[in-house]
Nucleic acid binder design. Structure first.
Length: 676
RNA sequence: GGGCCCAUAGCUCAGUUGGUCAGAGCACCCGGCUCAUAACCGGAGUGUCCCAGGUUCGAGUCCUGGUGGGCCUACCA
């Protein structure tokens, strides 16, 4: 049975081919803060993060570089470790899926599932896209090509091993019903329930080596390696030394089920459905809570490589410091919601909360103590009514802070603490220490300033998990050292008598110097990116924050991410010549009767009859406005049926999955003009 | 098309099971103070609580419909 005094939190294992960005940092910061908090409370904490190193994309990238996949991932893992170092992330374990300790567990689990009859070999036939690493049905195909990547598909008849996921679907439904907090936030829980209302199929958990060799080999059948998701999810227990049979490993016994799996909302289904049923099959419990957080937009826009606005965490650390970065991302938006990252908001948040409220409370208290009390912590006097009220507020603030932090409601925790900080500033205003000094009431003066210092002590103590460096700076000015080995007692922390009278204070120096304007590098960056972006930020933009936003946390590659573009092989001029492009003019445009995102056009491409062309740009364009528009059309595409309507070509558009503009020509030209 | 969620002061949002619910923070304005990082404290606001119906003695708070937005899912040549 798992002990009560332990705490286990995980981040997803990040796909090693991506560069770490704001989204990765966000999840990891949140995990680090709760991990540090529970450590502070005296619990035995296990904080796991890591990277996912298998799969097609890694193999391709390595091949292109002419090195082994292992060499490749050995290099690619470094930026993660380096960033976590700079961000002050104190993980207990960092797992890589190519480590033997992980692969061993994957193999043991597979063996166990096979032995108990939960894996079966099945022949499968279908169109396989190497680029997307998946099968498509005939109907999925677009002009006989992969609908995701546009790459060719091949008819593959092959065997694979399948996991009887369907067998555990009811158990999962029951589990979710019986554990209302299993999936957070509530809206995500509903999504999963919706997903589960449909029939749950079995899960293909292998890939033939002939097609994709970079994975964990099946122990009993060397024709296969393990499907990357199945492999990746097991990291949460492989890192604990899990064994499916025999004596449970000590860490597994002490830390499973995990308290929190922190994940991005994009990988919710995988965790809620695949992972849970895998655990059921092993006779284990799922994690206590899956917490799906939201995505960041940047300055009102979706973060994406194509927009060139991917936020580099290193820049933020350079310009604002790791602690301020950590505070901001957790304070600005409720955990679980989408939010916008803007430098302006960061600056305002910094100035209001950290410089004006907290920093200045310390500074003015220390300054007055230095001036009138010889630079020492004053002695407490007999409490007045106001003092008692202040103490009550402190008790409440500390209790709320702890509860909200443990519920991952970081912003609420901060709100509670700042109520106390603001009360401190107000206390100075009402007690008027300068007047007390003039009156020569040194006893009261000492008591008043002392309580202000105590409030800062409370804040510094509670903020240790969030701002490890800054909280120590605050403490240093108070003449104390925060002892992070101490098991924090909430009642003890809240008592406004934790300092010792007579302790020398450090000279007053602003810990959070107010920002007058954004740092020059940031201003330059904003001028550059905002200046080159054609589209104005708009809330009504249909694809803003859309589903194609880069995964912040997915342990597997997202086929549509721009990474794929970098991997596109070079083609010869002959290859290109196969594509026939002509100018066209849109004669008619209407919505597709049976599809939300499709528009149906009649396009004059200089032939006798206009062509019918279907295009997936309904999310961006009103059909009426496109009539008369000059476009560029691929005229030698094989026709394909799209939702029942045959499309005889393709209108070129800029943008990835989200269309951002139509391709045109600079001069009005007759329809049918060759484009090359 | 199916499913889920949201729409409250200039901005970001709180508002448990219907009855001081019209609020907080930021921004802005006015006033106060002077210890302090041009900070701090107080006050004033402005709101058709998206629209239209309905249930009720009483509805941001429940129901129906609509509008707008987001998310999951299918179509995206």
């Amino acid at each position: 049975m798992r002990p009560d005094d332990t705490y286990y939190v995980t981040t997803p294992i990040y796909y090693v081919n991506d560069k770490p960005h704001l989204g990765h940092a966000y999840t990891t910061i949140a995990a680090d803060v709760v991990a540090r908090w529970h450590r502070l409370r005296g619990q035995r904490v296990h904080f796991l993060t890591g990277v996912d190193e298998h799969g097609q994309k890694v193999l391709e990238a390595a091949t292109r570089r002419g090195i082994s996949p292992q060499q490749h991932v050995d290099e690619m893992v470094e930026p993660y470790k380096a960033l976590w170092e700079r961000l002050g992330i104190e993980y207990d374990d960092f797992i890589r899926t190519t480590e033997p300790r992980h692969e061993r567990v994957v193999q043991a689990v597979l063996q166990r599932l096979k032995d108990q009859g939960d894996l079966y070999l099945d022949a499968y036939e279908g169109w396989y896209s190497t680029a997307a690493e998946r099968f498509w049905t005939e109907k999925d195909l677009v002009d006989g090509k992969c609908p995701d990547t546009g790459q060719p598909v091949e008819w593959v008849q092959e065997e694979n091993w399948f996991f009887r996921m369907s067998k555990y679907a009811d158990q999962l439904r029951d589990w979710i019903a019986d554990h209302p907090d299993f999936i957070r936030p509530e809206s995500r829980r509903n999504e999963v329930l919706g997903y589960l209302r449909k029939e749950v199929g079995d899960l293909c958990v292998t890939r033939p080596v002939s097609r994709m060799s970079w994975g964990v080999p099946l122990p009993w059948d060397d024709r296969f390696v393990t499907y990357v998701w199945f492999d990746a999810l097991l990291n949460y227990i492989s890192a604990l030394g899990y064994t499916p049979d025999g004596e449970p490993a000590a860490d597994f016994r002490d830390f499973w089920p995990a308290d929190h799996h922190l994940i991005g909302k994009d990988i919710l289904t995988t965790h809620a459905v695949y992972w849970s049923t895998m655990l059921f099959a092993l006779g284990e419990r799922p994690a206590r809570q899956l917490y799906a957080h939201g995505w960041w937009t940047v300055e009102g826009r979706k973060m994406s490589k194509s927009l060139g606005n991917v936020v580099d965490p290193h820049l933020l650390i350079d310009e604002y410091g790791a602690d301020v970065f950590r505070y901001f991302v957790l304070r600005e938006i409720p955990f679980g919601y989408d939010g916008d990252f803007s430098h302006q908001a960061l600056m305002e948040r910094f100035n209001a909360d950290l410089a004006n409220d907290l920093g200045n409370l310390l500074h003015r208290s220390v300054s007055m103590s230095a001036r009138w009390l010889g630079g020492e912590v004053g002695a407490l006097d007999a409490p007045t009514e106001a003092d008692v009220a202040l103490q009550e507020l402190a008790d409440r603030a500390v209790a709320t802070y702890a509860a909200e932090l443990e519920a991952l409601q970081f912003h609420k925790a901060f709100e509670a603490l700042w109520e106390l900080v603001r009360a401190g500033n107000k206390y100075i205003d009402t007690e008027q220490p300068w007047a007390l000094n003039r009156q020569g009431d040194e006893e009261r003066l000492a008591g008043v300033l002392r309580r202000c210092l105590e409030i800062v002590r409370v804040a510094a103590t509670l903020l240790q998990p969030v701002m490890p460096q800054k909280s120590h700076e605050l403490a240093r000015q108070l003449g104390i050292v925060l002892d992070d080995d101490e098991h924090l007692s909430l009642e003890g922390v809240a008592r406004l008598d934790g300092l010792e009278a007579g302790t020398p204070l450090a000279p007053a120096r602003p810990v959070f110097p107010r920002m007058q304007e954004l740092p020059p590098r940031i201003r330059a960056l904003l001028a550059e990116t905002l200046g080159t972006q054609a589209d104005p930020p708009s809330r009504s933009e249909p694809d803003a924050g859309g589903g194609a936003a880069e995964s912040a946390s997915s342990p597997t590659p997202n086929p549509e991410t721009p990474v794929a573009e970098e991997q596109t092989p070079l083609i010869s001029i002959d290859d290109f010549a196969k594509v026939q492009l002509r100018t066209g003019r849109i004669l008619e445009a209407r919505k597709h009767p049976d599809a939300d995102r499709l528009l149906v056009f009649k396009v004059d491409v200089g032939e006798e009859q206009p062509r019918t062309i279907v295009a997936g740009i309904a999310s961006r364009y009103e059909p009426e406005l496109l009539v008369g528009q000059q476009v560029v059309v691929v005229t030698n595409l094989k026709p394909a049926r799209l939702r029942g309507i045959e499309s005889q070509g393709m209108i070129l558009a800029a943008g990835g999955k989200q269309v951002r503009g139509l391709v045109g020509v600079s001069e009005p030209l007759p329809p049918g003009t060759i484009v090359r």
